[in-house]
């Protein structure tokens, strides 16, 4: 369950930021999840629920974590073509799983559909990111 490690990162980062900002109670954490990483949202929510129980000094209810899946955009550095990887199912299982663990491994398995180069960038929809934290001071 690799989602556990990323869920733990969200909980720990939110708590650290809340302490830094003197937030006594966190009321909302907006988390973006990049489509490329193919996070299993049920597994991720289960991990959030269980990890937050470990930290009782600054309780963080999983219900206040707002998860939003961000669609992906890739852009070629050579010809400038932008594209969205809409369907990862055409990849082999191990390729898809590699991208799940480390989205940048897409460079090993994909090429720009315009010019064929591996020299592209992941503009959007890469992985887990905390967009904002709200709370009561």
């Amino acid at each position: 369950m690799h989602e556990w490690a990323l869920a733990e990162a969200v909980i720990v980062a939110a708590r650290q930021e809340a302490k830094k900002q003197n937030i006594k109670q966190i009321t909302k954490v907006q988390v973006k999840i990049g489509e490329l990483q193919q996070i299993d949202l049920d597994v991720f929510k289960f991990a959030l629920e269980n990890i937050q129980k470990i930290y009782d000094d600054l309780p963080l209810d999983e219900n206040i974590i707002d998860l939003e899946v961000e669609s992906n955009i890739l852009k070629c550095k050579v010809c400038g073509k932008e594209w969205e990887l809409q369907d990862l199912t055409h990849l082999k299982e191990d390729e898809s799983e590699a991208i799940h663990f480390i989205p940048e491994t897409a460079h090993a398995f994909m090429r720009c559909p315009g010019c064929g180069t591996p020299d592209f960038e992941i503009v959007k929809g890469r992985g887990v990111w905390i967009q904002s934290i709200e709370g009561v001071l």
Binding site: K77, E95, H107, A108, P118, E121, I122
Partner: peptide
């Protein structure tokens, strides 16, 4: 994770 494939990518992605 790269299944023996060459992996060409830029610094920010590394």
């Amino acid at each position: 994770f790269t299944a023996g494939c060459p992996w060409a990518l830029r610094g920010s992605e590394v």
